[in-house]
Simulated scan of single mutants.
Amino acid sequence: MIGMCWLLLRQGRLDEAETLAAQTADMIEPRLSRATPDECAAWGWLALRAAAAAGRNNRPQEARHYHRVATTAASAVGREHTGSFFRHWTTFGPLTVGMKGVEDAMVVGDARTVVCKAGEDALSPKAWKSTGRPSDDNWNRHRMDVARAHARTGDLTAAMDELTGVRRASPQWLQHQHVAAETMQEILKKRKRTLTAAMRDMASYLGVVG
């Protein structure tokens, strides 16, 4: 069901995605005093899907409510958990919920909030000792949001640092991300001086023409 909600989001069927995620979350809401990490993670991911749909559908109050539910679920889990039902593609925990909050802020164009939150220790590798490591895909997508936020706020060096870091970690993944190419286009447009060698190389790598 979590995957179905993701597909609906990708298709832009936001009302359906929110309704399905929210109703399913209500149906499976666990009793936290006796819930397993898997049960809390499933409940939390459904809340995140509902929050993403509501935020993209100009329903900020509902999005905040769902995000609070996800935060409650993450607190019950305690750290990043690899659930048995999504073992091969993601984790759930406080760090994932924090990253999704950053993603939601970027969706509504609040780049300054993204930069501010991304700079907190709770959303940095420093926190991984206590929170556990997020999935690579979620971490890379998070860094793409941060790169774009830096580009939007004019810190092109920081934006390039993020792109370079993701390229170093997941080169093939980065090359197929539209957000990466769009971020690079923003960097090229805003750069007032001659492009650096790193910028030219990244633009070429992402197939972006300046």
Rank of each mutant, 00 (worst) to 15 (best):
T71Q: 07
A159L: 10
G93S: 06
A54F: 00
R167A: 07
T72K: 08
G101D: 06
M160I: 09
G165T: 02
A203E: 13
T72R: 07
G207Q: 03
A73D: 08
V102P: 02
Y205F: 14
G207L: 04
M144R: 02
M99F: 02
E80A: 07
M27P: 04
R112F: 05
N58Y: 08
G165N: 04
R64S: 15
D26N: 13
D145P: 11
Q172N: 14
A52T: 08
F85T: 12
F85N: 04
R87C: 13
A180S: 10
R13Q: 09
D26H: 12
D38S: 02
Q23I: 09
A169H: 01
K192S: 15
M106R: 11
M199F: 05
G93C: 07
A35L: 00
A122K: 11
H81E: 11
A159Q: 09
D121T: 15
M202I: 10
D110T: 06
T96C: 14
S84C: 11
R191Y: 10
K190E: 14
V108F: 01
A181I: 10
C116T: 15
G154Y: 01
P37V: 01
I28S: 06
S204H: 11
G83R: 04
A73Y: 02
Q61W: 11
S124K: 02
H150I: 06
V115I: 03
A70S: 01
V179G: 11
V108D: 05
A149Q: 00
K189C: 15
G83E: 04
I28T: 05
M99N: 03
R133M: 14
E186Q: 15
N58Q: 12
G154M: 06
E120F: 10
L163Q: 04
L20A: 07
A118M: 06
A73Q: 05
R59M: 08
L14V: 09
S75W: 06
E29F: 08
S84E: 13
G207P: 07
T164C: 01
R167Y: 01
V179N: 09
D15K: 03
R152S: 11
T153C: 11
A70L: 02
S135P: 06
M144C: 10
M199Y: 06
Q61P: 09
I2Y: 02
H176N: 14
T91H: 05
R13S: 07
I2P: 10
H142F: 12
L9E: 06
E103H: 08
L195D: 10
A63P: 06
T131G: 03
W128P: 06
A22F: 09
R49K: 10
S75A: 14
M99C: 04
T90I: 12
R168N: 09
D110I: 10
S84Y: 06
R10P: 04
D145N: 14
V179F: 02
L8N: 04
L188C: 15
T19W: 11
A197N: 14
H142L: 09
W173E: 04
R31Q: 15
F86Y: 13
L174V: 01
W173P: 06
H142V: 05
F86N: 15
A76H: 00
